[in-house]
Amino acid sequence: MIFLKSFFSREVLIYSKKSSNVIGPVIFFLICIAFFPLAISNDPNELSRLAPGLIWICILLAGMLSIQTIFKEDYDDGSLDLFYVRRFSMLQVVLIKIFVNWIFTALPLILLSCLMVFLLYFPLEKLLNLIGSLFIGTLIISFFGALAGALSLGRNSILASAIMLPLSLPVLILGSSASTYSSENITFFILLLLALLFFSVPIISIACIGAIRLHYE
């Protein structure tokens, strides 16, 4: 328990000291969102129709930026080596790192998505659906991103995205459907997203540990 607490506060400290990891995805997300009206059309009707998909795409792309930060810095400065050598519980390390990464990189984006009611004319009555699906969806994306980051430690970031994007396809489909369709169907998609989350947490964490281990063999 003490380990959990101290490791958690260590992670939080790192993110609060190095704010570029937090601000980077936010700026990227806003720029991405701003591109769509410029490139497609500024017609409010069309934008509000496209908004759920656009928000989800931008969230996914911004998530791609942050996957590099989950393990890479600890790998580069050698802390990950120490966690491994000191026989820390890798499961706890992986879970805490993913969760703290989610708090600092995905949560701001979810809050920012509320702004899309004004920027992309996202229909207000569906905002709750969007936020709910984003909460679950970004968690799943964080897990897939962690796996991609762990597999491609010390390698180029294109590779990590190439691994992560096909994996997160179901999240994109279910999430954007959950925020597009009317409220009768929403529980169906939210439940599917939840199922996917509970399904991927154990599998991806174990795969992550395996992926980290292979860098030390």
Binding site: P166, L167, L169, P170, I203, A207, G210, A211
Partner: peptide, 16 residues
């Protein structure tokens, strides 16, 4: 690792 995770995910992708 990637082949296994991908194989677990492929049916889900297919369904979705």
């Amino acid at each position: 690792i990637l082949a296994m995770v991908g194989a677990v995910n492929l049916p889900i992708i297919k369904k979705s």
